[in-house]
């Protein structure tokens, strides 16, 4: 039985606004195995980015982690002090946030930015050793040593994103969370960046959570895929099954809406709109848009159950 690298149990995150509490993440529960790549797919407002931030305890007011546990290395991250959590971030679990390539300091060379991260975590190396470490990191993401002396504006989008990956892995974390790492990149560059991430993961023996909205992109990279809707995890399934045997109606309709090269001229979307997270419908959050909804769906919220080995889904239609 493989050990789990990360366990998320019953995580609830609410944003408190003057108009009410926005339930951004609602009792999310999943485990990330060692050496595994897990995808979290969802549209805007599904709660996937909130999940990524919550795992690292980076939710800022008015958001608050109401309850839940996140287990890493045998410790519940929710019980750690802020100082201890700071040590955990980057050293044990690293994140490549959305738009991170635009967050590189424009007036500092790449070398200094990577070194900053190392120094901040108490890595004491001589100037020469630091330089070597930076060079090794750049090499592991497929960049030449010359990049260390450059400024961010001299790099292309793909290269900047690979620098962000280098910073994320600089302390050899065991878990990497990548939130939309390729969203602004061209399709060819996107593939390069994802391949870099895959290589890096294998070298480190780490696990990756890939958060994104592009189901195709996520599917090409991960072993297991989780689908989020309205703050809830509605289905988790291995990639080999989810496209052939999707269980939850939302997953089915989402897959059907993706444009393919197989069929032309058919436009199938999901009717209606995602619910407001502060005004969720009673029962199952998807029932207003679900063509297979029946009366139980309006009253009772479905709980996730292991319907097949390795596959969980939350739907009343399932046995």
């Amino acid at each position: 039985m493989t050990t789990d690298a990360l366990q998320v149990k019953d995580l609830v995150v609410h944003y408190h606004t003057p108009l009410g509490a926005v339930k951004a993440a609602d009792h999310v529960h999943f485990a990330l195995r060692a050496d595994e790549r897990l995808g979290l797919v969802g549209e805007s407002g599904s709660g996937k980015s909130t999940m990524a931030l919550a795992i690292l305890r980076m939710i800022k007011p008015p958001g608050r982690i109401e309850t839940g546990e996140v287990w890493l290395d045998g410790r519940n991250l929710m019980t750690l002090s802020e100082e201890e959590m700071r040590h955990v971030r980057l050293a044990r679990i690293a994140m490549i946030p959305q738009g991170s390539m635009n967050s590189l300091n424009p007036v500092t060379r790449i070398r200094a930015q990577i070194a900053d991260a190392l120094r901040d975590h108490g890595v004491k190396l001589s100037r020469r050793q630091l330089g070597e470490r930076v060079r090794d990191l750049l090499q592991s993401v497929g960049l030449t040593p010359q990049v260390a002396e450059m400024y961010p504006h001299q790099l292309s989008g793909g290269m900047k994103q690979r620098v962000c990956i280098a910073i994320a892995i600089s302390l050899r974390p065991k878990v990497i969370i990548a939130d939309e790492p390729t969203s602004a990149l061209d399709v060819v560059v996107q593939k390069q960046v994802m391949e870099t991430l895959a290589r890096v993961q294998k070298d480190l023996g780490a696990s990756v959570i890939l958060v994104g909205h592009d189901m195709g992109l996520v599917a090409q990279f991960v072993d297991r895929l989780g689908v989020m809707y309205a703050g809830k995890l509605v289905e988790v399934s291995p990639v080999r099954d989810i496209f052939t045997k999707p269980l939850h109606p939302y997953t089915q309709m989402l897959i059907a809406s993706l444009p393919s090269f197989a069929q032309k001229g058919v436009f199938r979307g999901i009717p209606g709109l995602a619910p407001l997270l502060r005004d969720l419908p009673p029962g199952c959050a998807f029932h207003p848009r679900c063509p297979q909804a029946f009366d139980r769906c309006q009253k009772e919220e479905p709980q996730p159950r292991e319907v097949r080995p390795e596959t969980w889904a939350a739907c009343h239609l399932l046995p």
């Binding site: 003057p18 009717p271 209606g272 709109l273 995602a274 619910p275 407001l276 419908p281 848009r289």
Partner: peptide, 25 residues
């Protein structure tokens, strides 16, 4: 038309009292 789909946005009801909103702000 999907008659079963309720409108996403709540109908235009009266806003919470202006004074209360001002005090909250």
């Amino acid at each position: 038309d999907h008659a079963s789909a309720p409108p996403r946005i709540a109908p235009r009801v009266a806003q919470p009292g202006r004074l209360a909103a001002a005090m909250r702000y």
